[in-house]
Design a protein around this nucleic acid. Structure first.
Lengths: 223, 223
DNA sequence: GTCTATACTAGGATAGAC
DNA sequence: GTCTATCCTAGTATAGAC
C-alpha cells in the first residue's frame, strides 16, 4: 500500500479525482477539442486544465495532441460497434424494422451519453485529415454497412437511391450530436423520436414503428 | 480604358481570372477553410493560392482571417433567407406540406450549389466562437423559425417534441452539407429525396408528398 | 495593389533535474 | 510523474518602398 504518488509532485495541487493522470488529460482534452476545435486547442491549455505543466503531457502521450485525439476517436465508436453483431443476431428476421430501430436507438444512446459529446470530433476537418482518423473511419464504415443492410431489408427504403441508404441513416442517427451541441437535453423521448424518424424515412407505417419500439424495449436493456 | 492594373505588379503572375483580387481571396479561403478548417488554415496558405504575398491580404481585409470568414458566412445564408418570405406568400394555405417542401428544396438547392460547400463553415467550433458568427446566427434563426411555422402546420408534426421541430427540419435539410462533404454528387433526385424525407418525418403520406412535389415544381422555378 | 522586410507572439517539442 | 528551462518553427501583423 503506497500512500505516496510516484514522481515529482505537481506544481499546484494533487488532483481531487481518482482518475489516472492520463485519463484526466483525455477528459480535459475532450472538453476543449469539442468546444473550440482540435487545431484551435493548444497543449498548454490542456495542461492548464489538468493542473500540470505543458511539457508533462509528453510523458503520457509521447506523440502529443494527435495521440490524444486518436484515443478519443476510438472511444467514440467502439461501444456501438461492439454490440452491433449481437443485435443483428437477436432480432427476428421477419421484422427487419425492429433491428433497424434497435440499431438506431443503441447508436443514439451511445452518442448521447459520450462524455463531452466526443462524437463530434470526427466531424472536424483537421481531424479528418489527421492520421489518427483512419482507424476510426474504418470502424465507422462497419457501422454504415450495418445500417445499409438493415435499411434495405426494412420496409420500402424510400429513403434514397440505393447504395447510400446506410449513409443517410447513419447521418440521421448522428444528428443527436448536433442536438447535444445546440444545448438540447437528450432524454429517452428524443432518442426514441430519432429512431422513429429513421424508420419513417424508410417508409414505415406508424403501426410498424410502434411495434418496433415495443419489441426494442425488450431487446435493448439486455445488452 | 485603363489597360494597366493599378498598383505594383504581382510577384509571380497576373491572374488568369476576371475576378477581383478580393474575390480571388474569398474563393481561395473558402476552399481551404472547408477542406482543413478555419483555425488550421494560415493566411500564408491563402495568399499562396491567390498568388500574392501574405502581407498583401491586409490591403483587402484589414482585420485578417476573421473578416474573410464573416463575409463567407453571410454568403452562405443570405440567398435562402431572401426568398423565404416570397415562398410563404406563394403557397396555398390549405396545403402547408407544399410550403414546407418548397422551403426544404430551396434550402437544399442553395446549399448544394454554394461554391466549395461553404455551408459547412458554420459547423466549425472555432467559427461558432468567432465574433463573425453572430450576424450569421441571427439570420439563420430566422430560417429556423420559418421551418418551425411550416412544420407545425404540416400534417402531424410527428417529428418530435414541440419547439424543436424547426431545429430538426433545418438540421435535416442541412444534411446536404454532409453529403457533399462525403463526396456524393448532389443531383435533382437527391435534393428531392431530402425534401421528401423531411415531409415523411412530419408524418406525411406518400400521396401528400407526391402532391407537394408536383406543386413545388410550378412554384420554385419561378423564383 | 502589391512588394520586401521585419517585429512579435504563440505553440510544439526536447533535455535533464528532482 | 512532474518540473524547469529552452529551442525552434510557424503564424499574425505592421511599416514603408515601388
Amino acid at each position: 500500500m503506497r500512500s505516496r504518488r510516484p514522481g515529482r509532485p505537481r506544481h499546484i495541487q494533487t488532483p481531487d479525482t481518482d482518475l489516472s493522470a492520463r485519463d484526466q488529460v483525455l477528459d480535459a482534452a475532450a472538453r476543449l477539442f469539442v468546444r473550440q476545435g482540435f487545431a484551435a486547442t493548444s497543449t498548454r491549455e490542456i495542461a492548464d486544465k489538468v493542473g500540470i505543466r505543458q511539457a508533462s503531457l509528453y510523458y503520457h502521450f509521447a506523440s502529443g495532441k494527435d495521440e490524444i485525439l486518436g484515443e478519443l476517436l476510438q472511444q467514440s465508436v467502439r461501444p456501438t460497434v461492439d454490440k452491433v453483431a449481437q443485435i443483428e443476431g437477436m432480432c427476428p428476421p421477419e421484422a427487419p424494422e425492429t433491428a433497424l430501430y434497435v440499431l438506431m436507438l443503441l447508436d443514439v444512446r451511445t452518442l448521447a451519453s459520450l462524455p463531452h459529446n466526443t462524437g463530434f470530433l470526427a466531424r472536424l476537418p483537421e481531424v479528418t485529415r489527421s492520421p489518427a482518423y483512419e482507424p476510426y473511419d474504418k470502424t465507422r464504415r462497419g457501422l454504415e454497412d450495418a445500417y445499409e443492410r438493415l435499411g434495405r431489408q426494412a420496409v420500402g427504403s424510400h429513403v434514397v437511391v440505393p447504395g447510400t441508404t446506410g449513409e443517410w441513416l447513419l447521418n440521421h442517427a448522428e444528428t443527436v450530436i448536433l442536438m447535444r451541441r445546440s444545448g438540447d437535453r437528450i432524454g429517452g423521448a428524443a432518442e426514441a423520436a430519432i429512431a422513429a424518424s429513421g424508420l419513417r424515412m424508410c417508409g414505415a407505417s406508424q403501426d410498424q414503428i410502434d411495434t418496433a419500439a415495443r419489441q426494442a424495449e425488450q431487446i435493448l436493456p439486455v445488452t
